[in-house]
Amino acid sequence: MMLSRTFASIFKVFLAGLLLTSASVWAAKGGGATTTTSGVLPGEDTSYAIEKEYSCLTGGCHETNTQLLTDHANSLMTHAMVKCNACHGTHTASQLGLPKPNLTGYYPGIGAIGYVVGKDRCLTCHSAQLLSAAGHRSNPTTCTGCHVPHMFLK
């Protein structure tokens, strides 16, 4: 226990730097930029999916993240009822016994510092696009480098 506390104290210092670094990296990648394009067309309504994501978007955790809400509301995947848990689902909530899980590793004003959705999650559904010669020009290590997270426009 003592050892743990010692480690904890040491890493408090480490954490401060880590968080600041993460926030900077996130901002440098364009995090927080307002997106003006949309993945949905007029008449395509994503409000039901968002309303049904009450655990995440209307339940006290992510309402203030306007970037996330805007991108997600303009996503074709949202229109197709692909909700937060499809990509971000983890065991966190069941382990903590809490009603509002933090599944993303994203912290307001800081950015994503932990769990990042991996390429394999995208490939769960989209392997055809990547593997098809006509569908994709390359096989990059990440998808979100080009496809904006939560909206997935290229």
Binding site: A8, S9, K12, F14, L15, L18, L19, Y115
Partner: peptide, 13 residues
């Protein structure tokens, strides 16, 4: 959150 996250570091995904 700082206290909570002191013991964690990012490793890949």
């Amino acid at each position: 959150w700082g206290a909570l996250l002191t013991s964690q570091a990012i490793v890949g995904g």
